[in-house]
């Protein structure tokens, strides 16, 4: 029997474009609703701050909001704009990492937006009052609507992984999803990254994504996976 050829897979997996449809809401129905209101320009939700631990989807939601309103997300160390008109919508991700000068700029922009009819959507790892930033900025962030984005439950993570798998073009079994939750880092971006690696690995071997394949992916690791692909490419060229 001839040895199974490895399929060359272009490692150009595009990240899924952030969208609200692609976000599993879990216990975050209210902040998502308010984000919708923010996008709709609701007067009561001009200033919205979302906080939560790494991997709960802050950057994803901000990117989805920016895509929806045709804006951009400013992510430090990228600098905030020098000037701003009072009716703009500003989106800033990870305010907890703003440097001293940028904090003053955000403070300034906040005042400009508030005096005008502008809007601010911001995120950080901590609630406003615990942010390691200037007091006059944290109190302003706490002045608007503040929501904690909560991590998904395991059941919601399974649903999110299955959704992502369908987007990648395969079905993820309950067993495989369960295996991922038990063996990989459990925040959603990390789980999705494993899923994407598993997809590439499965395509290259023309095998379905199963528990044994996931075991290989998690055990083999990225470097060896790359080496495997190189080897496959070499064989084909030969």
């Amino acid at each position: 029997m001839p040895p199974l050829m490895q399929q060359l897979v272009l490692d150009l997996q595009l990240p899924a474009p952030p969208s609200f449809e692609g976000f599993v809401r879990g216990d975050n129905a209210e902040p998502l609703f308010m984000l919708g209101e923010w996008l709709a320009g609701a007067e009561d939700v001009r200033f919205l701050y979302l906080w939560g631990e790494a991997g709960v989807g802050k950057s994803y939601l901000l990117a989805a909001a920016a895509a929806r309103c045709g804006g951009t997300v400013i992510q430090p160390p990228a600098a905030l704009p020098d000037t701003l008109s009072g009716d703009e919508a500003l989106i800033v991700d990870g305010v907890d990492t703003l440097g001293a000068e940028q904090q003053i700029r955000l403070f300034d922009h906040y005042n400009t937006l508030r005096e005008g009819r502008g809007r601010l959507l911001a995120s950080g790892r901590l609630p406003p009052m615990l942010l390691p930033l200037r007091d006059d900025l944290t109190t302003r962030l706490g002045w608007g609507l503040v929501y904690q984005l909560k991590a998904l439950s395991d059941a919601d993570k399974v649903a999110a992984l299955k959704q992502r798998a369908v987007a990648l073009g395969f079905d993820l079994s309950d067993d495989a999803a369960e295996y991922l939750l038990r063996h990989a880092t459990r925040d959603l971006p990390a789980l999705n990254a494993v899923l994407e690696r598993a997809n590439v690995h499965a395509l290259s071997l023309r095998r379905p994504v199963t528990v044994p394949l996931l075991r290989e992916v998690l055990g083999v690791g990225r470097e060896e996976g790359k080496a495997g692909r190189e080897e496959g490419r070499g064989k084909r060229e030969g």
């Binding site: 009561d44 009052m129 302003r140 706490g142 002045w143 608007g144 609507l145 503040v146």
Partner: peptide, 20 residues
């Protein structure tokens, strides 16, 4: 208890919850 902005933020949150 700490400041008026935080207090007003909390009120906004309560009103938003009622609306939601």
């Amino acid at each position: 208890r700490s400041n008026v902005r935080e207090l007003e933020g909390a009120l906004k949150r309560v009103l938003a919850y009622a609306r939601f």
